[in-house]
Write a protein that binds this DNA or RNA. Structure first.
Length: 260
DNA sequence: ATGACATTCTACGAATGA
C-alpha cells in the first residue's frame, strides 16, 4: 500500500497537476495540505471521478487539509488539533483507513522569526507533541504525514548556514521536531535513506529546482506497528518540474499489508 | 538587507508563504 503526502499549494489552481499525479502514481492514501479553498470549493467531484473518497477541512484563502483514499472507506476521527479552541486555522485532520490511524498536518511556517508567528508555531508543536504521545499510547498503527515546515538536520537543507535564523531551521524548531521523534516515532525517509540528500520543496525563486537548492520539510512519522511494515519511501521529484507545479513535491511510503 | 515567484481575494495591491 502506498501512502503519500503533498502540499498542493492551492487545490483548485493545481487541480490538473494533482489529477495527473494521482493517475500516474495511483497512491492508495493521500494527505493534502494548503488547499487554499473554502470548505464548499473543494473539487469533490473531480477527486471522486479520479477514484478517491475524501474528507477535508477547508478555509478561505489559507491553509486547508484533506485525506483521500482510493476505494477505501475513511472514518473521520477529528478535524482539528486538540488543545486550543481559539485556533481556527485548518491545519489538521485525522481518519481511520483500513485499520490505520492517519493524521494529516500542515504545521505553521513561523516566519518572520522571532515574533508572534514563531510563537504560534512552537505552541502548535507543543499541542502536536501532546497529541502524538496520546496516539502512541493507544498502541495502534499510526501515520502522521504532512508539511512539518522543519528541516530536521543539516542534511535536509541545501545551504544550512543560510537558514540557521529561519523559522524552518532554528535550533528550537529542530528540537521541537526531535522531541516528537524521540517519543518513539520513525522518520520514514531518513530510516531508509540515512545519508542521501533528499528534498521535498524547492522555492520558485532563482531556479531553485534547476539548481537542486531544496529543503526536506514534508515528513512521515510512523508508529512502531507501521515502522515494522515499512518497505520503501521516496519523493516524486519530477512532479516539481511539471507546468504549474506546487513548490513542494509529493512524498510517499510503501508499507506491507498487516500480518493476520 | 532585499527581492526574486506564485497563490488567494466583496482583489486591481496586500497578505502569505518558506
Amino acid at each position: 500500500m502506498r501512502i503519500a503526502t503533498y502540499n498542493v499549494n492551492g487545490v483548485n489552481g493545481r487541480l490538473p497537476v494533482l489529477l495527473r499525479w494521482l493517475e500516474t502514481t495511483k497512491p492508495d492514501v493521500v494527505c493534502l495540505q494548503e488547499l487554499k479553498a473554502p470548505q464548499e470549493k473543494f473539487p469533490e467531484k473531480a477527486i471522486a471521478d479520479a477514484g478517491y473518497n475524501a474528507i477535508w477541512h477547508g478555509q478561505k484563502s489559507w491553509n486547508g487539509v484533506a485525506i483521500l483514499a482510493r476505494g477505501m472507506e475513511l472514518k473521520e476521527v477529528r478535524r482539528s488539533l486538540p488543545g486550543d479552541d481559539e485556533d481556527l486555522h485548518s491545519r489538521y485532520i485525522e481518519a481511520i483507513i483500513n485499520g490505520m490511524l492517519v493524521g494529516c498536518l500542515y504545521l505553521p511556517n513561523g516566519n518572520p522569526a522571532p515574533g508572534p508567528k514563531l510563537e504560534y508555531k512552537l505552541r502548535w508543536f507543543e499541542r502536536f507533541a501532546a497529541h502524538a504521545a496520546e496516539l502512541l499510547a493507544y498502541d495502534v498503527p499510526v501515520i502522521l504525514a504532512g508539511d512539518y515546515n522543519v528541516m530536521p538536520t543539516e542534511l535536509d537543507v541545501y545551504k544550512p548556514e543560510r537558514w540557521v535564523d529561519d523559522a524552518l531551521f532554528r535550533p528550537e524548531v529542530r528540537a521541537a521536531f526531535k522531541n516528537i521523534v524521540d517519543q518513539g516515532w520513525t522518520d520514514a525517509i531518513r530510516k531508509l535513506h540515512p545519508d542521501e540528500t533528499i528534498y521535498t520543496f524547492w522555492d520558485y525563486f532563482r531556479n531553485a529546482y534547476g539548481r537542486n537548492a531544496g529543503l526536506r520539510i514534508d515528513h512521515f512519522l510512523l508508529s512502531p506497528h507501521i515502522d515494522a511494515r515499512l518497505l520503501a519511501a521516496g519523493v516524486d521529484k519530477d512532479v516539481r518540474g511539471w507546468e504549474k507545479s506546487s513548490d513542494h513535491a509529493p512524498t510517499w511510503i510503501e508499507i506491507a499489508d498487516p500480518e493476520e
